[in-house]
């Protein structure tokens, strides 16, 4: 099966606000979607710069988020501060293996994998790499989908500190680590939202750079307009 044409080659834009397919305004003029009034952009605004900025901030805060304790627990004479990792260890120790695994994945594995994956995607995109585009796009979809699940530990602290309030007997208090952790989750979400996966596919083909010349580009446009494929249907 031959490749479907790309919207940017046909001078088409999918509106970010409502998915309407519209013609790109001529001469790079600023246009607005006729249906939802959103400014028409070929690609997300300043995608790579913004994504890097959020990602670097997230990576820096990842260190205090994991090193600093997230809450203080007081039970009679016992007092201890727990970090994200020690919270997982405690669940495991108590025999709640399933939840220990869920919390480990949501709080430790997902944030670090998100940071690494986004960094790899950003670097590969900036280098104009053609390496495994399909897999890279899939990784981006997964990163974008799992992002908010890492907020789990923040909610657990919020619940514990309100439920465990027995004066001198037992008490739970939040510690600065939980704020750093919450910030990491928000920042990685912003980083993945800012990244535009279409930029990966914009890398010029290693050979035959036909689109560089505006005249051939117009010719290609007419040719591919005739050959827009019917969307392939697949069973779920």
């Amino acid at each position: 099966m031959n490749k479907p044409p790309r919207a940017s080659d046909l001078g088409l834009i999918a509106c970010e606000g409502c998915d309407l397919v519209v013609r790109q305004p001529p001469n790079n003029e600023e246009g607005f979607c006729p249906r939802c009034d959103e400014p028409l952009r070929r690609r997300k605004h300043d995608s790579l710069t913004r994504s890097w900025a959020f990602l670097i901030a997230a990576a820096l805060l990842y260190i205090p988020a994991n090193m600093l304790p997230i809450m203080h627990t007081q039970q009679l004479l016992e007092r201890y501060d727990s970090t994200i990792l020690s919270g997982v260890a405690l669940l495991w120790h108590n025999g709640a293996y399933d939840l220990a695994i869920i919390v480990f994945i949501a709080s430790i594995f997902v944030p670090i994998m998100k940071i690494i994956s986004l960094a790899v995607l950003l670097i590969a995109t900036q280098r104009g790499s053609h390496w495994r585009l399909r897999e890279r796009t899939r990784i981006y979809r997964i990163v974008d989908y799992v992002g908010h699940w890492s907020m789990l530990d923040v909610f657990v602290v919020v619940l514990l500190l309100t439920l465990v309030q027995f004066g001198g007997l037992a008490l739970v208090q939040p510690l600065p680590g939980v704020m750093a952790f919450g910030a990491v989750v928000v920042l990685t979400m912003l980083a993945s939202m800012s990244f535009d996966p279409r930029l990966m596919w914009d890398a010029p083909a290693p050979h035959a750079d036909a689109n560089a010349n505006p005249e051939t580009r117009a010719a290609n446009q007419a040719a591919s307009e005739a050959g827009i494929h019917a969307a392939a249907a697949a069973q779920p």
């Binding site: 490749k3 790309r6 979809r141 996966p197 279409r198 596919w201 827009i228 019917a230 969307a231 392939a232």
Partner: peptide, 8 residues
């Protein structure tokens, strides 16, 4: 939305 391909 992910790779900018156009389909009917």
């Amino acid at each position: 939305k992910f790779c900018d391909s156009v389909y009917q």
